[in-house]
Simulated scan of single mutants.
Amino acid sequence: MEKIIEVSGVSYFYAEDDPWVLDDVTLSVNKGEWLSIIGHNGSGKSTLAKCLNGLIVPQKGSVRVGGFDTKDETNIWEIRRLVGMVFQNPDNQFVGATVRDDVAFGMENHGIPREKMIDRLAQSLRLVKMEKFADSEPHRLSGGQKQRVAIAGIVALQPLIVILDEATSMLDPEGRREIIKTMRTLNKEHGLTVLSITHDLEEAVNSDRILVMNRGKVVREGSPREIFKTPELLEKIGLDLPLAIKLRRLLNQRGISLQDTALTQEDLVNELWTLRSTM
């Protein structure tokens, strides 16, 4: 598959005497995939995200995005056109008095002609189901709605990659589901490459691939099914397992033999129903 991001031997520290926040990290991201990068706070996830759009440049190694090296300053604006970031707190991203103004702001900064701006604004709000709120004040929206507006602002710029940096951590469960569903639609139907930086393993379950980080290193990589086959590693580095994984383990301990295929609550219910029907 075509690689859109290539990270080779990247190491980074914030101050001369501090330990490496990233320590010899190597990874690649395929065009159109959903990659979740998981790890506890301080594992290097957010620092890695900043390396991917050129906000910081590593002291060692290289980062190439769409073929552009982030160390070459002449590439920075090209890279930032390719990569959009949605952060933890959407309030920190709002600059417009209305939703419409806010989504238009980034396009104005990129010098997009007015006719195209109007089309893209309408399309991006429609994609995130916020077209009815175009004239609303952003601070009056719910947390999930605010985050959808932030996503619309990024989508309007038509990047190839969107990085969700703990973008759902401040939302309630319903808000989380809304955002993940919206991004899943953009990923599957529009070919958007999505990197989800998170410590919420419930979100990571539906990824195409997962990277596990600990103390600045990539310690595990694989499909969700491969990663959750050995939940002991995730627990050891301080991550909270998805509810379905916990329940499956408890049921196995009580003599109800289940396979290791159920990753979501829906999967587990279906597996239990199948088991019941064969008894």
Rank of each mutant, 00 (worst) to 15 (best):
Q88E: 05
G191V: 13
L272D: 09
V128T: 09
L268S: 07
E78H: 05
E115F: 04
V219H: 05
A152V: 11
D200N: 11
N187C: 06
R114T: 14
M130Y: 10
A204G: 07
M213K: 01
N89G: 00
V25Y: 08
I4W: 07
P58M: 01
G255F: 13
I180R: 05
R176T: 13
L211K: 01
E6P: 02
H139S: 02
L157A: 07
G32C: 12
E108W: 01
Q88L: 08
L160Q: 12
G39Q: 02
H139P: 00
S36A: 15
N252L: 14
L55D: 08
D91N: 07
N75L: 14
V155T: 06
G42Q: 03
M279L: 15
R100M: 14
V63S: 03
G67F: 00
R276I: 15
R276A: 15
G222N: 07
K116E: 15
M1S: 11
I256G: 06
L247M: 11
S136W: 08
L35P: 01
G54F: 12
K146I: 12
T47G: 03
L195I: 14
V194S: 09
L186P: 10
G144T: 07
V103C: 08
W20M: 10
R176W: 04
N92L: 15
G66V: 14
R209Y: 15
N53D: 12
I151F: 11
L192K: 05
G61H: 10
L125K: 03
G222R: 01
S196L: 15
R220E: 15
E174R: 01
D200W: 06
M107C: 10
D260M: 09
N41I: 09
D72V: 15
I112R: 00
L48R: 02
Q145I: 08
L258F: 14
A244Y: 10
S196D: 14
M85R: 05
G32F: 14
E189W: 13
K71I: 12
G106Y: 10
D135W: 05
Y14M: 00
H40K: 07
R140L: 14
G39F: 13
C51M: 14
D267E: 12
D17C: 01
P224S: 09
L239A: 06
L251P: 02
I163K: 00
I163F: 10
V7D: 08
K181T: 15
G106T: 10
N89W: 08
K246I: 12
M183L: 15
